[in-house]
């Protein structure tokens, strides 16, 4: 039996459902030609993103750096569905049209957005953790990386530095079986990616990524450890990417049986069952939640659709704090 309160379970279940339903809405919007660019799904991985983010304590300053499969973490930290829809529709939303999909962040809401270069957020988040330590603040930096991204150089350098400096840092490797078309055993010879922790002299934990409570608890434990000044933890969350890399990829390279096997382990169904069996929620609660989220998302889509596209000339703004980029020296300046 988990240590979570009834409210915590309900909160987690809300974000699990919300994540899935936001992506389903995005699927519809994409079919209507309203999404510009590709759609990345986190179907089947919501337990990892939501469970870990829910374990953070924003009032202590904790900061998360979600990457492409972590819509659940974005939403749990306080990113809104409206923002996500605006991003995918290239509207004048949180990045004013400069960036795409969940490449946005809000430090005041304790999450920052990624760069595409996999692994580069790890040294950066180590730096944020260093900031917490130097300022003697209780905050913890939580960074995510895929089984594929974990092969990059900065992953090693960032984690090693965090270990050597005893930083309040957590790295979650989301081992979802594939990196684009490449299976995890072509990224690493390890069967347990958490064993890498040994090389850094830090604890390495493998957790069932489709068990949202297990992810929550592992993250909470790592955060407590970090807050006690005992340094970073590497958590491997074992889950599965139920859709292709992005919309264009039908993942023909994944055996059918494997997908079926993981379908039976769906993290949302699993948490729902847990709540029902333990008297934490009843079917009516679940139905009500569904209706509530549907209404929220209809409103969010409407808001995002009515958001204008950014104006072309605003491309010139914000390269530096002061000043406007020059359009071309031979053109009259734009006022």
């Amino acid at each position: 039996m988990s240590t979570l309160s009834r409210e915590q379970h309900h909160r987690i279940h809300y974000f699990l459902r919300l994540t899935r339903m936001v992506e389903e809405k995005l699927g519809n919007l994409s079919a209507q030609g309203k999404v510009i660019g590709s759609l990345y799904r986190s179907l089947g991985q919501e337990g990892t993103a939501v469970g870990s983010a829910a374990a953070l304590e924003p009032d202590k300053g904790d900061i998360a750096a979600p990457i492409l499969r972590d819509l659940g973490a974005v939403l749990t930290m306080g990113g809104t569905p409206t923002e996500v829809f605006q991003q995918y529709m290239a509207k004048n939303g949180p990045t004013r049209g400069r960036e795409l999909n969940i490449h946005f962040g809000a430090p005041e809401r304790n999450f920052i957005g990624p760069v595409s270069m996999l692994g580069e957020m790890i040294p950066l988040m180590a730096g944020i953790a260093l900031g917490f330590k130097m300022r003697k603040q209780p905050g913890v930096a939580l960074c995510y990386i895929g089984d594929g991204g974990a092969s990059t150089g900065p992953t090693h350098e960032g984690l090693n530095l965090a270990a050597v400096l005893d930083l309040p840092f957590i790295l979650i490797i989301e081992n979802n079986g594939y990196a684009y078309s490449t299976p995890t055993d072509r990224q690493s010879r390890l069967t347990r990616l958490a064993d890498r922790a040994l090389a850094y002299g830090i604890p390495g934990v493998t957790v069932d990524g489709n068990d949202v409570i297990a992810v929550y608890e592992a993250t909470r434990e790592a955060a407590d450890r970090a807050r006690r000044g005992e340094g970073p933890t590497l958590i491997e969350s074992v889950t599965f990417r139920m859709k292709g890399h992005a919309q264009h990829d039908n993942q023909a390279y994944v055996p059918r049986e494997v997908i079926e096997e993981w379908q039976a382990k769906d993290p949302i169904t699993r948490h729902e069952r847990y709540m029902l069996e333990n008297g934490i929620a009843d079917h009516e609660d679940i139905d009500r939640l569904f209706a509530r989220i549907s209404a929220e998302l209809d409103a969010a889509v409407a808001e995002a659709e009515s958001t204008p596209m950014p104006e072309g000339v605003t491309a010139l703004l914000d390269v530096f704090e002061n000043g406007v980029a020059e359009r071309a020296p031979w053109l009259a300046p734009i006022s």
């Binding site: 510009i36 290239a90 004048n92 990045t95 049209g97 400069r98 596209m309 950014p310 072309g312 491309a315």
Partner: peptide, 11 residues
């Protein structure tokens, strides 16, 4: 422009 490549079509 002397800016990063922006994503939204008008930009």
């Amino acid at each position: 422009l002397d800016t990063p490549v922006p994503y939204s079509p008008p930009l």
